[in-house]
């Protein structure tokens, strides 16, 4: 049918348009020189330039450290809060939702700037760039952690399970953390993977808050951009593959639970 053909065409054209820059960047990372329509040749030399570099791995490691710290922190905070809301004060959920969705509306730049003005130059722990980074990212991923955990709790009917566990003789704390949490683990992991992807690819927060004092992957990328085009695309390719792996894990998990 004509309708179906147009639809298919529309879909694949869009898909193609979206994939094109990705493919180009990938090809560029292998090209020796590309100032005409086609590259002059293919080479691995830029991979050889970037991959063995220690500062490249250090930047990836720093990013990973921030990711892990933030996600573990945010996860624990959110679970504790959801424990209280689910078991004791279901009416608070409304307020928690509003608070957690504010970062989603404000976006990175405002949050980063507001934290920077307040804490830069502060004494002690609050003034540490790493603490500021973790704090900022925590706030930024809060909406995703909240949604993921809340939906998972709904899906397992957390309140009813806790009642049943109570009748059988355990405390609500035990019920929440030993029965409910194992059952929403996949939801937690999906949110964590999503958050990791966001933190990994972020540039605005780290540029505003840490500048070049704490070089994460994005900062490394920006630095490389000034040096060489092909080298830049190598870094992009590596970063993209990492993000892809993360979201594939999340995707597979989501399909498994359904």
């Amino acid at each position: 049918m004509k309708k179906v053909n147009f639809s298919k065409w529309m879909m694949w054209v869009t898909a193609l348009y979206l994939i094109l820059p990705l493919v180009l960047t990938f090809l560029y990372s292998f090209s020796s020189e590309w100032i005409n329509v086609l590259p002059t040749g293919f080479t691995f030399k830029y991979y050889m330039q970037i991959l063995p570099r220690q500062d490249f791995y250090m930047s990836l490691a720093r990013t990973l450290l921030i990711c892990v710290l933030t996600i573990v922190l945010a996860g624990i905070l959110m679970l504790l809060a959801m424990y209280v809301v689910t078991v004791y004060h279901p009416k608070f959920d409304k307020y928690l939702q509003i608070l957690c969705m504010i970062p989603y509306a404000l976006q990175g730049i405002i949050i980063a700037i507001s934290i920077l003005t307040l804490y830069s130059g502060a004494k002690g722990l609050f003034g540490s760039r790493i603490i500021m980074l973790v704090g900022t990212y925590c706030i930024i991923i809060l909406p995703y952690m909240y949604q993921g955990i809340r939906n998972a709790l709904r899906a397992v009917s957390a309140r009813e399970l806790i009642e049943a566990a109570q009748i059988l003789g355990c405390t609500r704390f035990y019920a929440f953390f030993r029965i409910i949490v194992p059952n929403i683990l996949s939801g937690i992991i999906i949110s964590s993977m999503l958050s990791m992807g966001i933190i990994f690819g972020d540039f605005v927060v780290v540029n505003v808050i840490a500048g070049s004092s704490y070089q994460t992957a994005s900062m490394f990328l920006y630095k490389t951009m000034a040096q060489s085009g092909q080298a830049t695309s190598v870094v992009i390719v590596v970063m993209f593959i990492i993000t892809l792996i993360l979201s594939t894990i999340a995707f597979k998990l989501r399909n498994k639970t359904h």
Partner: peptide, 22 residues
Amino acid sequence: LSILNMTSNFSGIPLAFAYIIL
């Protein structure tokens, strides 16, 4: 959908760079 999910992550510096190439 997978393509959409994959490319929705492609933003910021990598995106700018890709368009500079183009």
